[in-house]
């Protein structure tokens, strides 16, 4: 295994991303879906950092900070909505929560 560090880093990020994606698709608990999305976001962040170190610029790192901030905001709103949903439905199953059709 003699891989260029950038390639390896991107590969790792990609694997994380795919794991997150799979998890979003198969999980039925909304909180876990949210968590999986966070994993994907962080995978993207990792990819940015790897790219940033590859080019020797700070752009990617700055981007990662923004991703962090955005993920945080997303989680706060998301959890609030989930609380609200739980309050109404008494379940976090995403199939149960799918009441609108068409």
């Amino acid at each position: 295994m003699n891989m260029h560090p950038t390639t390896a880093g991107l590969l790792l990020a990609g694997i994380l991303f795919v794991l997150g994606l799979i998890s979003v698709l198969i999980r039925r608990n909304i909180i876990f879906m949210l968590l999986s999305v966070e994993i994907m976001l962080n995978a993207a962040g990792l990819a940015f950092v790897v790219a940033s170190s590859h080019w020797g610029t700070a752009d990617g790192q700055v981007m990662f900070m923004f991703i962090l901030a955005m993920a945080a905001a997303e989680v706060s709103v998301g959890l609030a909505l989930i609380l609200q949903l739980y309050h109404q439905l008494r379940t976090l199953d995403s199939d149960e929560a799918n009441r609108m059709h068409g």
Binding site: M65, L68, A69, A72, A73, V75, S76
Partner: peptide, 8 residues
């Protein structure tokens, strides 16, 4: 979460 990210 919010303020800690701000701290970052």
């Amino acid at each position: 979460v919010i303020f800690d990210i701000e701290t970052v």
